[in-house]
């Protein structure tokens, strides 16, 4: 065990861990909300995220090209990329709800079968992205869209739009603008979402449906709408996560969602599934603990650390750290 390395790089490990954790948390929201309302594991949510990364990537490629841009224009480009990513992810999430879930939810099918449907949808979505060059070929578009569809099965990287400025030091580590941007915007998003679900009429509908779908329906909540809203909000958050991920990591691939999805789901369970604040807590703890653990045991043990933490926490606190359900959140 490498304690020296952990202590010497403590600040850097913590800050980057928080940045990763913030991204996990945003993805985890999608899992946790759908679980809170429908009690099913939305396995395909990772693909919702993956489509968001590509939307961000393509938007910047389209607007920036190979030339470098001024700071002001760069900020504009990034904002557009954020909007594109959120729109894309939200669309995919809504389509997913319509195609893979609605019929099963309506027929009250066993929850495991909904999981299988989600797994199927996840394969389909990932492979559609991974075969985009071939699909463009069917329509004779592969030359026009060369830049976007090429390298369908390998890593594609984001053009550099903003310089990653070093802002201020914590200990030995210079905190960069991207670290701050990722952490701050993730937390802002979470607060907005939390307030929305707590205070707005639609949010109340979602919470009512999560608590008791039948009674909610009797009280005039359109449960189909509530479920749709849940997917929409989850998709929006996944899109934001995708954008931040592209800022931080800068590369994406058709199967990038899988590992991140598993991690985000872990974060959701860690914080207490069905609980919005739990997702934030779980995500941040997972991100930081993973970084510390990989410093201590070597980076190849990173994922093992994450899962061991999960197992240990669930043993002592079987409903997660905050352990509240979506329905029980105070109004």
């Amino acid at each position: 065990m490498n304690f020296d390395f952990l202590f010497n790089n403590f600040a850097e490990l913590t800050v980057t861990g928080l940045a990763f954790g913030a991204i996990y948390a945003l993805i985890a929201l999608g899992y946790t909300m759908v679980y809170g309302v429908l009690q099913l594991i939305n396995f395909a949510h990772s693909e919702v995220f993956m489509y968001g990364t590509f939307a961000a990537l393509w938007t910047t490629m389209l607007l920036v090209g190979d030339s470098s841009v001024s700071t002001m224009k760069g900020i504009g480009v990034l904002l557009l990329a954020l909007v594109a990513a959120m729109a894309m992810s939200a669309t995919i999430a809504l389509v997913l709800e319509r195609v893979a879930y609605r019929r099963l939810v309506k027929n009250n099918s066993p929850r495991l079968i909904a999981l299988i449907s989600a797994i199927g949808a996840s394969f389909v979505l990932a492979e559609l992205m991974g075969l985009r060059d071939r699909i463009a070929g069917w329509f004779g578009l592969e030359d026009d869209l060369q830049r976007y569809v090429a390298g369908a099965r390998i890593n594609r990287s984001m053009p550099n739009v903003l310089d990653n400025k070093q802002l201020f030091p914590i200990g030995d580590y210079q905190v960069t603008s991207i670290d701050v941007l990722v952490i701050v915007s993730a937390i802002v998003m979470m607060v907005v979402l939390d307030q929305f679900v707590r205070r707005s009429r639609l949010g109340r509908g979602i919470r009512a449906t999560a608590q008791d779908p039948e009674t909610a329906a009797l009280m005039g909540v359109n449960s189909t709408r509530a479920v749709q809203m849940t997917f929409l909000l989850g998709g929006l958050m996944a899109g934001a996560a995708a954008f931040l991920y592209m800022l931080k990591i800068e590369t994406t691939k058709f199967d990038v969602g899988f590992t991140l999805g598993v991690k985000a789901f872990t974060a959701a369970v860690l914080g207490g599934i069905g609980n919005l604040r739990g997702a934030l807590v779980g995500g941040l703890i997972l991100g930081v603990a993973e970084n510390w653990g990989s410093a201590l045991f070597g980076s190849e043990w990173r994922d093992v650390v994450a899962f061991v933490i999960l197992v240990v926490i669930l043993l002592f606190r079987p409903t997660g750290i905050l352990g509240e359900s979506l329905g029980k959140a105070r109004a």
């Binding site: 195609v99 893979a100 019929r103 099963l104 099918s109 079968i113 909904a114 299988i116 449907s117 797994i119 199927g120 949808a121 996840s122 394969f123 389909v124 492979e127």
Partner: peptide, 9 residues
């Protein structure tokens, strides 16, 4: 994947 979805639904 499409077959899984169709079977489930």
């Amino acid at each position: 994947g499409a077959a899984l979805m169709a079977l489930a639904i």
